[in-house]
């Protein structure tokens, strides 16, 4: 239970920070001040009051950039993760429930899809679609639906073999009615858990794409972009690299722990 609250708490905090970024951020994340470049964070010597996590090589406030970066991270997590979940789950449900040629078709599609290395596939897609946030979202959804389709298909097959599905047929439910009323509620927890994990993954993928400059325009603050910049300053100002990495790490960890916690919580026999 503790991990559900801890991880959920971090994600809520992050979401609030992202939504109210203009109100919370102490500085304009884009404001450069070359007189204040590479200021250390507050606990180190030479820190400037007001710049809690220091500044980067262009004198931009690291904390403010982190807060604005959370916006991009969460938008991608929700939209890309959500789209992948919907696309993959619908295909997985239909394949697992209907079986036959639908199942064979979806199965082959998944096999083919998964034979591409995902990051390379993403870079290729963004290169074709053009850089930008919407391209990143589309690319992730188009690539990662297989994660959902595979698991949801297997889970749907297992649920479809349960007697309560046969039971629904005996009492006269139509096939699609059975899918919606009997199977979906029992597969939904799996989908939610996967979605939580997937959101963590999308945050990483977005960071990778930002790192290679294929995400939003390079001025906008993203954690991946910050890591890319911080890397060049590693010997002079380690915090520029470490701050976004910690944010990224905590967020991905929170998503995966939230998913695990959700799994225990949603088991009807455990409550």
């Amino acid at each position: 239970m503790a991990r559900l609250w801890l991880s959920g708490g971090w994600l809520v905090l992050l979401a609030l920070a992202a939504i109210f970024a203009p109100l919370i951020a102490p500085h304009d994340p884009l404001a450069q001040d070359l007189f204040l470049e590479k200021l250390p964070p507050f606990w180190m010597e030479g820190a400037e009051p007001g710049y809690y996590l220091g500044t980067d090589s262009l004198g931009r406030d690291v904390l403010s950039r982190l807060i604005y970066g959370a916006r991009v991270a969460l938008i991608v997590a929700v939209l890309a993760g959500g789209s992948a979940a919907i696309l993959g789950s619908v295909l997985g449900l239909l394949a697992g429930y209907l079986g036959g040629w639908t199942d064979r078709a979806v199965g082959r599609l998944i096999d083919i899809w998964m034979s591409f290395p995902p990051v390379l596939f993403a870079i290729l897609l963004v290169a074709v679609l053009g850089t930008g946030l919407s391209s990143v979202i589309i690319a992730i959804a188009v690539i990662d639906w297989t994660r959902f389709a595979r698991v949801v298909r297997a889970e749907t097959m297992a649920q479809s073999r349960m007697d309560y599905v046969a039971s629904a047929t005996v009492v006269g439910r139509s096939p699609l009615g059975t899918l919606w009323h009997e199977v979906v509620p029992n597969v939904l927890p799996t989908i939610l858990v996967l979605l939580s994990l997937e959101m963590g993954i999308t945050v990483i993928v977005e960071a990778i794409l930002s790192f290679v400059n294929l995400s939003v325009s390079s001025d906008d603050p993203t954690w991946g972009g910050m890591i890319a910049e911080g890397r060049t300053q590693i010997h002079f100002a380690l915090w520029i690299l470490v701050a976004p990495m910690v944010a990224l790490f905590l967020t991905v960890l929170a998503f995966s722990q939230f998913g695990e916690g959700l799994k225990d919580r949603l088991d009807p026999a455990a409550s």
């Binding site: 007697d163 046969a166 047929t169 005996v170 009807p268």
Partner: peptide
């Protein structure tokens, strides 16, 4: 299935494992 609908009320079944034949949710 659509033709059977009319007969479904007449043809009922009780299953071996009530845990798996009753939707847990």
């Amino acid at each position: 299935p659509s033709e059977l609908t009319g007969h479904r009320r007449d043809l009922q079944m009780v299953f071996q494992d009530p845990m798996s034949s009753l939707n847990p949710r």
